[in-house]
Nucleic acid binder design. Structure first.
Lengths: 361, 361
DNA sequence: CGGTGTCATGACATCGATGTCATGACATCG
DNA sequence: CGATGTCATGACATCGATGTCATGACACCG
């Protein structure tokens, strides 16, 4: 590969002059510039970042650690694939002239510190750690003050983090359902081990509360996440319980789109027409599922792309601030609810009836 | 960040000795080694790849260009997300001590040459280009002899490439169906613009042929790919045509899992029970869909992870060969058929079981 | 005409690691 | 005892780019 010396030789100038042409940081005679540019083209010269970053002490690299790239093979979490977070981060970073170095844990958390080491060898200017689902964790400690942003996760040490606003998502979803005339709203949640559970439940309750609808614990059922047959039976039972409550729900909120996809099949097997006899919602806005299920599935978006983008922006700000410590913070990112065919809107008469009833209370 | 000089100073030795300790490439007195190792730990020293690769002329970096990372937002292709190809490549490369630099076209193909430039600045030792679906394309030309592997695509110039064996996948799928007793096999294909169409059709025909089943063009219907409402009507029509053939098919092969997901809904809307009254297959083995549809969906795997891995192996071999030109080639990678609940086996015992149960009602 | 300023360019050192060669301390051998 | 070999270590140059400083050519001014 050609070097700046080769170019200089061919153009009959000093390497420094070539450098000036490339960087445009000092005046160069236009005739000289032309000769140099010709030589560059002739030799297919591309400057070496390694040499540059040695002088400048800036690599232009950002390290991104994720399990995303291997996660789909193993026990996959229920949500959207976190690759969308990588997507968002990569876009923002590329727009700012940074190149992204990815490394993947391969689902072996103990590898993280070795990956970090490799990234530091490349002198990344900052790190983003992407978790597969909203969780709390503890990374091996880096040098103090090294720019690090956690995406989709957070820790105890006050490290900068960007998280999905799960409470708000379920709140907006529930609120929308109520405004469309639903008041018996079934809720299939995930197990307690999942952080999002409580947050979403809070959003659900808040919406009910604002509209004066009493919270009925019978309508909230914990459904399992995992994919094996046993859990599948449990989901079946959960639905039975919902359908057998004194006043049947008119809509079921599923903890995520995958669960909703199963519920489509289960409900139809017992002859229930969708959405006429039962409305359904998911969570994640997993496009492949939501757009292609029939009827298409209403879902609250898990704003992964935006989380990635925000994490990147935060990181860039931290890098820019340099030594001056920016106060780190935890950002919540909200996503919209995407209304699709799986939810019926009851007609105005019903709404009227309902509001009447409410005022009767 | 600490340098080798800092370590040397702290340990009271020369930088070269530190280098020897790090690389273990020459004998060092065990006492000296200990002192040096202590100093390294003390200073959190991490050697700089930039400096190393300047001397060694090896960056340890592989460039990976993809549209994957932005593809889901725009007009998404029908298949599996190509991120799985990245997955496979990253795994193999990491196992070989290489770090992956990703860059994304952001769905703007004209950006490719700029991305290549950036990757070359980082002195990547090779490049993998990942396409979103099986296609022919033309990359901007690199320096001749620069290690490059195309994944999920190929060109006219005989560049090394790794492709899915679409013909074999559909062949195995069709063969399996025949062996399970199906002989009227509907086939919803993708438009002619898609390369996989002809390949898969060939596989379908070959299987029929081997079992002496006549090819009936009426059973093969071109269904659209895109997601808008109009195309959706067309899919409906396609299914009608299939159901109205003189002898109805007992199974419908869909061009991909997403299409199959829609067909589930469409068939059920007209009261057809799955899989009892109609078997279904997809293509891609898009796990989120196949595992979670009810009944679970039989599908031929689009072996993206393996394609990525193979591409990486090919690239590493090319790099290792160096100047000696390895003969480039196009590899086909086959994936298995994953048999799930959506296909009934029509052998006598099953038929008997069914009729028994039905008569019990 | 000499002093001063501007423009275009080059010589040289430097970033951090490591290959090459040299050196000094010992051990071993004839 | 002197020659030779081995071991442990260091001095120095080098990879490719660029910051610093110097230099030569020329214009302009008093």
């Amino acid at each position: 590969m050609a070097t700046i010396y080769d170019v200089a030789k061919l153009a009959g100038v000093s390497p420094k002059t070539v450098s000036r042409v490339i960087n445009g940081d000092a005046p160069v005679n236009s005739k000289t510039r032309e000769t140099v540019e010709l030589a560059i083209a002739e030799l297919n010269y591309v400057p070496s970042k390694a040499a540059r970053s040695m002088r400048s002490q800036r690599s232009g690299l950002i390290g991104l650690i994720t399990g995303a790239i291997s996660s789909t093979s193993a026990g996959e979490p229920a949500g959207l694939p976190d690759i969308h977070i990588v997507q968002g981060a990569q876009r923002v970073l590329a727009d700012n002239g940074m190149t992204v170095l990815i490394s993947d844990t391969g689902d072996k958390p103990e590898r993280v510190s070795k990956l970090v080491q490799t990234l530091l060898e490349h002198r990344v200017e900052g790190l983003i750690y992407v978790a597969e689902f909203h969780q709390k964790l503890q990374l091996p400690i880096l040098a103090k003050g090294f720019p690090l942003v956690l995406a989709n996760c957070f820790d105890d040490l006050g490290t900068a983090a960007v998280l999905p606003d799960d409470k708000n998502g379920q709140y907006e979803l529930t609120k929308g359902l109520i405004e469309k005339g639903h008041s018996r709203i079934g809720f299939l949640t995930v197990p307690e081990s999942i952080l999002a559970r409580e947050l979403r439940l809070d959003g659900y309750k808040q919406a009910l509360n604002e509209y004066g609808i009493a919270y009925d614990p019978e309508l909230v059922i914990t459904a399992a996440l995992s994919d094996d047959a046993h859990e599948f039976d449990l989901l079946w039972d959960s639905i039975d319980r919902l359908l057998n409550t004194p006043i049947k729900p008119t809509v079921i909120c599923c903890a995520n789109d995958k669960m909703a996809m199963r519920v489509y099949g289960l409900l139809r097997e017992r002859g229930i027409r969708l959405p006429e006899q039962m409305s359904l919602t998911g969570y994640d806005n997993y496009r492949v599922i939501c757009d292609h299920l029939h009827p298409t599935l209403t879902s609250a978006e898990l704003p992964y792309e935006a989380i990635g983008a925000r994490a990147a922006e935060k990181l860039l700000a931290m890098i820019k601030a340099g030594k001056q410590p920016i106060e780190t913070s935890v950002d919540l990112v909200s996503g919209p609810v995407i209304w699709r065919e799986s939810v019926t809107a009851e007609d105005s008469s019903v709404l009227q009836f309902k509001s009447t009833r409410r005022s009767e209370k």
